[in-house]
Amino acid sequence: MAQTDSQGLAKILIEQEQQLVAEWMANLMSTSSSAAGDVRLADQCTHLLRSLRQAVLTGQTRNIQGGEWAEVRQLLTEICYTRARQGATPRETAIFVFALKQALFSRLRESVADPALLAAQTLLVSNVLDELGLFTIEVYQKGREEVIARQQQEMLELSTPVVQLWDDILALPLIGTLDSARTQVVMESLLQKIVETGASIAIVDITGVPTVDTLVAQHLLKTVAAARLMGADCIISGIRPQIAQTIVHLGVDLEDVVTKATLADAFAVALRKSGAAITRAATAR
């Protein structure tokens, strides 16, 4: 029974391909704005329909995860990835598949006279296309997750610059919350820079850190301790009044670390420690 159903469906897919594509595209144009702008839409529809036909001909319509559906899945994956990257919503992506349903239903109604057969074939089409629709959602989700992961990685690299302020003074302006993954990156880049430049003083500026809780404080202290093991003194600067209050309320011990309110103060201390001084030139006004 399932075999004859899929045979019948395949026959419609072959014989009425032109009408199907036309109707499908018409449906897409009317429902989805992003699809309308895609010049390759007709191409995509035709391709997908043909590979769908191949898959239906094998009779394996229960499970679209099988090898028979590999080509359909690959085509859909490509289409969804492009859509996701262009910023289409998951709804729009899924509609690409669901729009075919309407087209197929009306074709079926015209070509199949027997009510029982029509019902069976309608069910079959509905099942297959639902599965494919769900598949597009999954792919869309995966595409988005990849985008997020890439952005996180980029942010991680962007947000940890180590700046050389003076011969042996480094500054580490921290922006954003410090979690353990970022602390690791921050620590590594700071220590690496200490080795490269031979700096003996590092200023960790936390002006851009929105909140300091016990965990962030612990991460800061770890960074300071690691820098000390490399023979560099650390100064923590950019402590805002609220953060000073939180630190004390939380009972975080910053006794062993030199702390300054602003980066300028910290820089002045660092210069004095390294034996340098900045003076105003006599001629300058």
């Binding site: 690791q184 620590m187 590594e188 220590l191 690496q192 200490i194 080795v195 770890k222 301790a225 690691a226 820098a227 093991l229 490399m230 023979g231």
Partner: peptide, 13 residues
């Protein structure tokens, strides 16, 4: 103590 490597410092901490 001199010459500690970055990786060693991180591990110790």
């Amino acid at each position: 103590v001199v010459g500690m490597r970055p990786a060693v410092a991180i591990t110790l901490v």
